[in-house]
Simulated scan of single mutants.
Amino acid sequence: MANRLTNKVALITGATSGIGKATAEIFAAEGAKVIFVGRRTELGQAVEDGIRAKGGEATFIQCDVTVQHDLENVINRTIEKYGQIDILFNNAGAGYLGHTHEMDIVDFDALFNLNIRSYFTMTKLVLPYMMKQRNGSIINCGSVGGIVGMPNNSAYSSSKGAVSLLTKSLAVEYAAYNIRVNALCPGMTTSDLVPAGGDVEKLFAPTVPLGRPAKPEEMAYAAVFFGSDECTYCTGALLVVDGGVTSA
């Protein structure tokens, strides 16, 4: 077992599958004490069991990140268990692919509640503890869709663009407390939302210079860097991990 995150308490949202699941597993393998949340209890328990079977330390808490009471419960349980929060990875999110003029405003509101409001709320709840510690790393999951315009993606892209500016604003506001705030901006990554060989992959894979979607683990290792002491002079950064899409 590696030790890049030894003795750090990490809180991860949206971690029953995809990037969040891979990050929970790799954070634990790197020595972190992991609290991770998601809505799907059976999947969450399976992830927890898998991490513990490999000698890692992890606790799953069922949570809807769009419900503030659920988030408060997660924070309280984390502090009761460990007394600190060193890393927050705001990862929960969803996409929407479709024409803007056909999108229902209810779906737009739901997307923003998940993709940006939950990040703001969770961060607001964690900050007092990190401020008291005068140390912490907050990682927000952005997207290449929040950096460049993409057709049929206006709601998703605008929510992820908001993540980018939330990240930069927080980085400036809390630097004096030694709290680092950075964003991981994935390109197309295999997940429940983007199944291998599915329609989304077929649509976007030709635009990727490396010619394939990312594996969730390739994003998780980028998150490890942000959470580790190797990254103590990095804040307000948007780390694009997209197989070359934004370089083409």
Rank of each mutant, 00 (worst) to 15 (best):
R4H: 11
S157A: 14
C234T: 14
S137W: 01
G244F: 01
V208M: 14
S118F: 11
A220K: 06
E217G: 15
V200E: 15
L203A: 13
S228Q: 11
T23D: 12
D70R: 10
V163F: 07
K81F: 00
A176Y: 08
N152T: 10
A22T: 07
Q62W: 00
P209C: 02
M1N: 11
Y96T: 06
A205M: 05
K124V: 02
S143H: 01
V208E: 07
G44Y: 07
S169H: 07
T190E: 10
G146D: 09
L184Y: 00
E48K: 08
V9F: 10
A28L: 12
M1G: 14
D49H: 12
Y119E: 12
D49A: 15
V74S: 03
N182L: 08
V240S: 02
I85V: 14
M130C: 03
V106D: 13
V37L: 09
P195L: 06
F204N: 02
M219C: 09
R4M: 08
V65I: 13
V67W: 02
K54N: 13
D86A: 03
S17H: 12
P128A: 08
V9L: 08
G20W: 10
A2L: 15
Y221R: 12
R40T: 13
G56T: 02
E25H: 06
S17W: 07
Q133H: 00
D104V: 07
E218S: 04
Q62S: 13
S157T: 00
I87Q: 01
K132E: 15
G149T: 10
P128Y: 10
L97D: 05
V172G: 11
Y119W: 05
L166F: 15
F36A: 04
A196S: 13
V200Y: 14
A29Q: 13
G197H: 01
M150C: 07
D192G: 07
C185S: 14
N91K: 01
S159F: 01
L193N: 08
T167S: 04
T167C: 08
L88V: 04
P216S: 04
